[in-house]
Amino acid sequence: MKIVISNSSKQPIYEQITYQIKEEIIKGLLTENTVLPSIRNLAKELGVSVITTKRAYEELEREGYIHTIPGKGTFVASQNIDDIKDKKNKMIEEDLIRIIEECKVFKISRDELIEMINILYE
């Protein structure tokens, strides 16, 4: 599992953690029933507060990516294929929404954006 936190990013740290773990699960790098580090161990390793990792895990659990068995630990939840597809789409959607917001601030039109996408996709 790889988690790299940026202190200068506008994204709150817990969101970064949630996002990166989500990503690895969706990409299949973290498979079903893999044991995840405890909230406290992860906090210590990353040098962040316990509440931060707690919140990250709470988000992930709420969205169905992980589940916690009291006394045993936290595991990657089983993901069915449709769910994964949905989740992948959702992640891309979240990123797109962010980009679209920025475009609006910079006053870049929808067509200009689509053109940019076409060029960059090559």
Binding site: R40, N41, A43, K44, G47, V50
Partner: peptide
């Protein structure tokens, strides 16, 4: 700070 984070682990 590192020692404290270890302490509450």
């Amino acid at each position: 700070i590192n020692i404290l984070q270890e302490y509450i682990e």
